[in-house]
Design a protein around this nucleic acid. Structure first.
Lengths: 225, 225
DNA sequence: GTCTATAATTAGATAGAC
DNA sequence: GTCTATCTAATTATAGAC
């Protein structure tokens, strides 16, 4: 491919550079095969470049992983829009429903995000600590406030319900997407189809917020205020 | 350690043999580091035996993995008792609640089971196909029947809700346990403590079945018949 | 049955041609 | 900036001592 000349100080094009291509390929490989299972040679092969370019651009495999994770959380932040920044203000039922649908759409479009979270969050180690301290903790305060309110309104017992609701929610959203190959083989149903994604979001909104379209708020755990 | 002599045809003691010890160690290692990430040397080291014993007992790494997975599903079947065999007969609300608590307790006691399922179910390959065809498909028919009934009673829209409820349920149960290290670091809360396991089961029963202890059946998605 | 030693392959990172 | 070639270390599996 033709490539325009660039001086030493001028940054290269962000979206079309092979560096960026390696970065996007790396996150998918790491999430699918794990950090140890994804070799730099296999990442380079999928990206269509030489293995030597990875140490050239990123130094170490660890550094490549970190840049790929940074990029993943940028994508999440962009997809959630105002919700990722606002935190747990005091959203209405419709705002919570919209947040659920935004997150479902993001996970369906980027299953590698939650696969990477599962890969690193399951065991202690430097990558888990780095990931949690740098990216998860800042998001967690807002999420806890939100689920604390949801839990109270739903009459969940005890003061520790928020953390449970948090993981119940993220697990309930993501499993069908990060287990998509298993789901297809066991049931013949493709959860990545647009109709399936919508049906999944519908089911989650119904489960967590109840069905307000019928004009009653009894089912579900969250009631309009 | 002293070991009693055995003839060629006599099977060795199942629970105390080093073969069995390797098998149990292997599942934890595979679930934590993935098939490629878990080296036979590291498995042998954790088990406290020599690396050469793995090809001696199991032939190949693949065969070791298969035996470890067989053992994991035996444990699941044992923990679920009558529920794993009965399938989706027509359980009462209390029976469903009991099944939820049994599964929560199993996942908390054996996070390596769902970690292994996540590890292999996320991508296509010979291990995923073997695992699904041999172990998941036989369980799936009963689960679908159960969630089909739950979905109908809860008024979920459409005829494909069962598969969504299935993955919503298994994801909701397991995430806090398979992400336990992440959970501890982000929140300081240990989901593996007995009180936490019970609180998680309480939250799930409340979410999926509603709170019948108050004598009303409005919240939740499942109503007593 | 359990060990040591090793063969064949592959890993991440480096050096240097162009 | 991208490639080939290579170094060192770690991988699975095998051979053989005891």
């Amino acid at each position: 491919m033709a490539r325009r000349a660039s001086t030493a100080s001028e940054p290269t094009n962000k979206d079309s550079s092979t560096r960026e291509h390696i970065l996007q390929t790396a996150l998918v490989s790491f999430s699918s095969h794990g950090f140890d299972g994804a070799s730099t040679r296999s990442i380079a092969k999928v990206a269509g470049v030489n293995q030597g370019l990875i140490p050239y651009y990123f130094g170490t495999k660890q550094a490549l992983w970190r840049e790929a994770v940074d990029r993943a959380f940028e994508d999440l932040s962009g997809a959630l829009g105002e919700f990722s920044a606002a935190g747990g203000a005091n959203p209405s039922r419709n705002e919570v429903a919209r947040m659920i649908r935004l997150y479902v759409d993001f996970v369906a479009a980027h299953p590698e995000f939650v696969l990477m979270m599962n890969e690193e969050g399951k065991r202690q180690g430097p990558r888990m600590r780095w990931l949690v301290d740098r990216h998860v903790k800042p998001l967690f305060a807002g999420l806890t406030a939100l689920f604390d309110r949801v839990g109270r309104e739903a009459g969940f017992p005890g003061h520790i319900a928020a953390i449970h609701l948090n993981y119940i929610f993220v697990g309930a959203v993501a499993a069908i997407f990060h287990q998509a190959p298993e789901c297809r083989r066991v049931s013949g149903y493709d959860p990545m189809l647009p109709e399936a994604i919508q049906a999944h979001a519908d089911a989650l909104v119904h489960l967590f917020l109840g069905d307000s379209s019928l004009g009653k708020s009894e089912p579900g755990v969250f009631h309009e205020t």
